[in-house]
């Protein structure tokens, strides 16, 4: 969030479980975060499960990135 305050586009990858926490922290820091939300957990996943998390989040990340860059 400090990066966003410094003008850097900084999407935050967060699991659903910790999303409220990150949102609270963003409000307290007065930052509107760019959030890429994935199902909880991330730790403990095998390779195939992790690939599923990546697959599920990639489209939203690319959309967010294109929008920030002015490509969409």
């Amino acid at each position: 969030m400090e990066l966003e305050k410094r003008g850097v586009v900084a999407p935050l990858v967060v699991t659903e479980t910790f999303l409220p926490l990150v949102q609270a922290q963003a409000r307290a820091r007065r930052v509107r975060p760019r959030l890429v939300v994935v199902p909880h957990p991330v730790g403990g996943l095998n390779e195939a499960e992790l690939a599923g998390r990546i697959e599920g989040a990639a489209a939203e990340l690319l959309r967010m990135a294109d929008e920030a860059r002015g490509l969409s």
């Binding site: 990066l3 850097v8 586009v9 900084a10 999407p11 935050l12 990858v13 967060v14 699991t15 479980t17 910790f18 999303l19 926490l21 990150v22 890429v36 994935v38 909880h40 957990p41 991330v42 730790g43 990340l61 990135a65 920030a68």
Partner: peptide, 10 residues
């Protein structure tokens, strides 16, 4: 960097 992808909560 112009853009940084951050792992923040999991």
């Amino acid at each position: 960097f112009k853009m940084v992808l951050v792992a923040v909560g999991d």
